[in-house]
Design a protein around this nucleic acid. Structure first.
Length: 264
DNA sequence: CTCAGTGTTCAGTG
DNA sequence: TCACTGAACACTGA
């Protein structure tokens, strides 16, 4: 479930639970794909480090320790954190199990193995974070700057929104929600948007991300008017609250839900 | 059994 | 070289 709001919610929970505590034990399964460039042994050696903070940029999140290296996570399509007492059994699909002082535990799970765990000395100065664009929650550009950026891209605006080297943190449902609320056809070249349309896109994006974060990414608390609630499962005959039909197509290689009668 | 999937990367194309 | 597209990755659940 990991787009920016889900990752930010995980960051806040993890930080509240673990900030200022030392790592008492750190185990990991042997998985060279998920643990890119590191090993269970190397991770175990982080015992004794203090978790100073938990930070995020785009969909990446990292534990900032009292000294390098720091532990960087990407949730992929299905990864996430489980927090709870160390006395409980490890959950299914666990990859990394961190026990902190006081018996507090964080488990990283990932059924699909598209998530990643990496060690970095300077997370923001190295790949993959260094290649990210602006964070859409913390650093959304002004309309004028956004217009300049979009004018340079001839790809469909949906694909451009998904480009992490531009809009860091946007994923498939956020992109569709923004275009739906802004009334824009997802296939439109990004460079074809008028200044007024860029303004709508920006304000919808800002509002959607803020509201999703404000409810800790709990989708049951997203506004009822959002397309989000009606897009899953490609239901035949799916429609908006106003009765407008929802269509599905592939744009930028991803399933795209949109409402032709509202999006031009 | 088949297929889609809230993501990223890389080879291939123009 | 750049911009863009589509397949691959890996695995679950419908």
């Amino acid at each position: 479930m990991p787009e920016l709001p889900e990752v930010e919610a995980a960051r806040r929970r993890a930080e509240r639970y673990l900030q200022g505590r030392r790592i008492a034990a750190l185990s990991a399964v042997s998985d060279p794909i998920v643990f890119e460039g590191t090993s269970p042994r190397r991770l175990a050696s982080l015992r004794g480090r203090e978790i100073a903070a938990v930070r995020r940029r785009g969909k990446h999140l990292w534990m900032e320790l009292d000294r390098a290296p720091h532990v960087l996570f990407h949730f992929g399509m299905a990864g996430g954190f489980r927090l709870g007492p160390a006395s409980e059994p490890r959950p299914r699909f666990w990859k990394l199990d961190l026990v902190a002082e006081g018996g507090r535990r964080l488990v990283f799970t990932d059924p699909r193995r598209l998530g990643r765990v990496r060690l970095r000395r300077d997370p923001e100065g190295e790949a993959p974070l260094a290649g990210l664009g602006f964070d859409v929650l913390d650093a959304l550009p002004r309309v004028a700057d956004l217009a300049v950026i979009l004018a340079r891209h001839g790809a469909p605006v949906k694909a451009t929104l998904l480009d992490q080297s531009l809009f860091a943190g946007v994923g498939n449902w956020i992109a569709d929600e923004v275009l739906y609320q802004a009334g824009l056809d997802p296939r439109r070249p990004a460079s074809s948007l008028s200044r007024e349309e860029v303004g709508r896109l920006r304000s919808r994006l800002r509002d959607i991300v803020r509201r999703a974060v404000a409810v800790d990414a709990d989708s049951t608390r997203f506004p009822r008017t959002w397309l989000f609630h009606r897009r899953w499962g490609r239901k035949l005959g799916a429609h908006t609250p106003r009765g407008e039909p929802i269509h599905f197509l592939t744009v930028g290689g991803r399933t795209t839900a949109w409402v032709p009668t509202r999006q031009r």
